[in-house]
Simulated assay, not measured.
Amino acid sequence: MTKVIRFHQYGGPDVLKIEDIEVLAPGPGEVQICVRAIGLNRADALMRRGTYIETPELPSGLGLEAAGIIERIGEGVVDLVVGDTVSVVPPVSMSRWPAYGEIATFPAFLIVKHPSTLSFEAAAAIWMAYLTAYGALVDVANLKASEVVAITAASSSVGLAAIQIANRLGAVPIAITRNSTKRQALLEAGAAQVIVSAEEDIETKLRAMTQAQGGVRVVLDPVGGPLFDPLTAAMSKGGILIEYGGLSNQPTPFPLFNVLSKSLTLRGYLVHEVVTNPIRLAAAKEFILAGLADGVFRPIISRTFSFGEIVDAHRFLESNEQFGKIVITR
């Protein structure tokens, strides 16, 4: 038996319960780890509320990221052994392979031996953020040195990873955040400039910052909603806006004039595009591990909670107060 966190109905953080369940042995091609840290993501809260792209059967587990020590190995698994210290690339289905547990099972191809210099907490904060940002900026947008990239929700774990990736590429990250309390922290995290959307006009500020380039070619956004108008108005001809979220509770307008007059691309994106493609995933792992090794990539952890504090952790997740990743430790 092992303790896991599940929910039996959709709703707020209070629906999360710690339960004891029987642990099945890992199947062929699977690896079972003793979990030491769990990374929280917005997707966790969306699935708990019943608004995620995956609709699970109830009761359901949760979680996409974990780090720990390999405890058991399924048939056919090579290059991994019991006792390896590892982290987990987010699976396509968190109901099939949930991370919220003392013991968790994942496909072996999603298991990464993480550098010994990383703590379990840092290792659990890597893959969703850096894979999402890498796939969007490198694979899809082909961001180049000296190019400007606008990053909304910049204080999120993905936003901060995108800032670091842009800097490693020699690009210029402009962070967009809702209030000024995070401005200095974003600058210290590597943003070249910061726009506070509650106090400044996004279009005007972006145009002024990118006048020499004729506007912003690449925009990374998880919000949608009314932001589409000022963002696309400040983009350059042939620019691309990559949408990977949809956090706004307001309708998202289609900026027809801006799209037509500038030949813009509005591109929906899921990290699953990278995770399910072995060639793209191998390239992403190599890039991310290299950035960790040279110290350019530094997962920023906002706050840690214990396993028993999962309800409080989800409340904090939905407070929008965090700067970086929220991690559960065991």
Rank of each mutant, 00 (worst) to 15 (best):
A208G: 13
G215E: 05
A198M: 03
E203H: 12
L206P: 04
I202R: 02
K237G: 12
V218E: 02
G215D: 05
V219G: 07
K182P: 06
G225I: 00
E203T: 11
L187G: 15
R178C: 10
E199Q: 13
L227V: 13
V194E: 04
L186H: 08
K237T: 15
V196R: 07
L220D: 09
V218S: 01
A191M: 01
R168D: 06
T181H: 04
L169E: 09
I176G: 03
K205D: 00
A234D: 05
G215I: 06
P226C: 00
L186Q: 08
Q193C: 00
D229M: 01
A198T: 02
I176K: 01
G214T: 10
A175P: 04
S180L: 01
E200V: 05
E203V: 10
T232D: 13
A192Q: 13
G190D: 09
G170D: 14
L187D: 08
V223K: 01
K237M: 15
L231C: 04
T181M: 05
L169Q: 14
V219M: 10
S197Y: 02
L241V: 15
L187E: 14
A189H: 12
N167Q: 09
T177C: 07
I174G: 01
I240A: 06
A191N: 09
T177F: 01
V218A: 05
L220S: 08
G214I: 10
L169I: 15
T181L: 09
G215Q: 04
M209T: 05
V223P: 00
A208R: 15
S236H: 15
T232I: 14
P230K: 07
F228D: 06
A175I: 08
L227H: 07
V223S: 01
L241I: 15
G225V: 00
A185G: 08
Q184A: 03
M235T: 14
G215F: 07
A171N: 14
V196W: 05
R183H: 02
A171L: 12
T181K: 11
T232M: 14
A234E: 03
S236E: 15
I176A: 05
R168I: 02
V172C: 12
S236G: 15
L187T: 13
V216G: 03
L241A: 11
A185H: 04
V172E: 09
T210Q: 07
P230C: 11
G190T: 12
I195K: 13
V196K: 09
V194S: 02
A171K: 11
R207Y: 00
E243Q: 15
G225M: 02
L186E: 06
A233I: 07
G170F: 12
L220G: 05
V223T: 07
K205V: 00
T181F: 06
F228N: 09
M235S: 14
E243S: 14
G238H: 11
K182F: 05
A208F: 10
